[in-house]
């Protein structure tokens, strides 16, 4: 049996992103040296929305990069199924930049570990900060987010899915209980 529960609707997601945009600007004292990097695929759409909000607030655009972490995964040698490779597009230097990584769900932390390794291959950022829409716990690595939309304590038997208009046709966060 499958049970679905909506834990965040379109307005909730939008309000969280607005708050996070202000928090990012507050912590970094504006947009100087600030860049966003979205992790494929969900993080990219969220990063685009954050960029729009930040440029509306500050009246100034900031660079946005796209990162696919597949080549840095730690399970390529053990998993039988090769993940489909996505595009990476970071067309600006990361040297001395304050990089805000954006992902939809923070879970084991392994994706973020891979993303940080990848970023450091692109240069030496001044700092790397992490933004996630949902932090569902169950970390397997010592990683935490700087900006969180919603903390969502979850059980390992649940799946947390962030649906976004850009890829799923609507904005909502749902928890699916398998069992």
């Amino acid at each position: 049996m499958e049970k679905k529960k909506i834990v965040m609707d379109a307005e909730g997601i939008d309000r969280s992103l607005t708050r996070i945009a202000y928090e990012i600007l507050e912590k970094n004292k504006g947009v100087e040296k600030l860049v966003l990097v979205g992790i494929q695929t969900g993080g990219v759409f969220l990063a685009e929305r954050l960029r729009r909000k930040i440029s509306e607030i500050e009246g100034r655009g900031i660079p946005l990069g796209i990162l696919d972490i597949t080549l840095y995964r730690d399970d390529l040698q053990t998993s039988h199924l090769k993940p489909r490779l996505g595009k990476t597009d970071i067309s600006f230097s990361l040297n001395d930049k304050k990089v805000v990584l954006v992902d939809d769900v923070l879970f084991t932390g392994r994706t973020i570990r891979a993303a940080m390794d990848a970023l450091i291959d692109f240069g030496r950022p001044r700092s790397i900060q992490l933004t996630v829409l949902i932090d569902r716990g169950h970390r397997e690595l010592p990683i935490r987010a700087d900006f969180v939309g919603k903390n969502l304590p979850s059980s390992l038997w649940e799946a947390v899915s962030v649906d976004l208009t850009e890829k799923n046709g609507r904005d909502e966060v749902v928890v699916v209980l398998n069992g």
Binding site: D68, L71, Y72, T88, F122
Partner: peptide
Amino acid sequence: SFIEVSTREIKKVP
């Protein structure tokens, strides 16, 4: 997708 790796400053992935 691999084209991009060869355009990086550090042209190597693990």
